[in-house]
Write a protein that binds this DNA or RNA. Structure first.
Lengths: 234, 234
DNA sequence: TGGCTGTGTCAACGGTGGTGACATAGGCTC
DNA sequence: GAGCCTATGTCACCACCGTTGACACAGCCA
């Protein structure tokens, strides 16, 4: 028997499915993203994907070894979209800030997919390009290699962590989503000042702040702390 | 028919299972946590839980409406364990560091539950206690209220974001988990220095660093940046 | 002692990801 | 253009998942 999955470049026979669709890895990834965006993360099953494609579910396994393989392709596609059109300016703080905010925004645009993909290491083209750009920015800024790597790690994982956290909030069913926000007014804002003095003193500020993403400020803090560790310029 | 789930205080008939085990919410939660800890994340299924309990899987549904209900109970237990035994020292940096590392560790210990719980605002007792402790620490340190709230937000979301990210990595099926780690050696360490000079220059450092959690260092960066914003002491 | 009912068990449902066998059509060679 | 090879789509399965309705029985109360 031949290998079930044939690498894309070697594919030649574009045999249409019963419903006349010509499959490809690209089409499957796009369809999966659309499926997840429209019907939520739980809609991403091989059977539904097959139906959305107009093909037998098992046809997907001609293009991806497993659903996990497909998920990694989704993850890399998201990273690629985040970097689309980005260009280095030479100002390391501005560059890192831009990359961080772009990653965050790209994942927010597909919260359901972000939830599934944010924590994977794909090792694929788009991810590699992003790693090269970030580490390059840090090294050009003057960070010694060990420090550049540590800051890279903190930067990337913090961006992905916030992206996943904020995506998870967006991906909640509307009812649960507003319920989570209402907790700040319904529960925290009503605590007794004698038992919870600090929450009581800051309740209004808390309620307002928790409605926003904490990422931009956290990113600024990370950049501040990184700048502290930059060896003094000549 | 009676309600399937009867509230704990009203339970009276402690009828043992065929294998002689007397069930309770507490026993089920403990068993579930042990199951995750001993046999990996994927071991937490109702069927396996039933087997571990020495009961029919469906008996679990006499105590929890669904697996999600069970997971929320696990989450509450986790928050409690993270705070167990913690005491403020008066040194705000040491206190915040301890809280952050405790939250991270508690979630890491039970990745499966952490994944589903990290992004929810419960408004329950343990969560409220943690919020009060963190904001109190910041205010006592001398941060003005608006700054205290912003730093609180960044601190908490950073902790939960990393906790979820790292938990997700642990919760992966073993195959995907080792695959993700292997990517650094199999893919990044072999890139050509002419096309990817920065990755090539730091490949060894990267491979080593990415095997660890980025959280402790990111937390240190956040504390550094926060200290910068502390109004000068008299 | 007898009845009520909470609780454990059983069987079943529709779903999941995944695989081996098979038919067929696309593209190559001649 | 004919004919072969085989990549690819399809089908029939598998084992497992969460969940539920029906049922039997055991523990408690009267």
């Amino acid at each position: 028997m031949t290998e079930r999955v044939v690498p894309e470049p070697q594919r030649r026979r574009r045999r249409p499915t019963k419903q006349g669709v010509v499959l490809s890895r690209e089409l499957i990834v796009e369809t999966a993203l659309r499926l997840v965006g429209q019907h939520g993360a739980e809609a991403l099953t091989v059977r539904r994907l097959g139906a959305a494609l107009g093909a037998d579910p098992s046809a997907v396994y001609r293009y991806f070894r497993s659903t996990d393989d497909l998920l990694l392709a989704l993850a890399d596609e998201l990273i690629g979209r985040a970097q689309q059109g980005w260009k280095a300016t030479g100002d390391w703080r501005a560059d890192l800030r831009a990359i961080g905010l772009r990653i965050h925004a790209a994942y927010q645009a597909h919260p359901q997919a972000a939830l599934l993909a944010a924590h994977r290491t794909t090792g694929r083209a788009h991810e590699i390009a992003a790693v090269e750009a970030i580490i390059g920015t840090l090294r050009r800024a003057g960070f010694p290699d060990p420090e550049a790597v540590r800051i890279y790690h903190a930067f990337v994982d913090q961006s992905l962590g916030f992206a996943a956290l904020d995506a998870a909030a967006l991906a909640l069913p509307p009812a649960a989503q507003s319920a989570d926000l209402r907790v700040w007014q319904a529960s925290y804002a009503r605590l007794d000042a004698t038992t919870h003095p600090h929450i009581a003193a800051t309740a209004d500020l808390l309620t307002a702040d928790m409605h926003r993403s904490g990422y931009p400020f956290a990113l600024e803090l990370l950049l501040d702390a990184a700048a502290l560790r930059l060896p003094a310029a000549p």
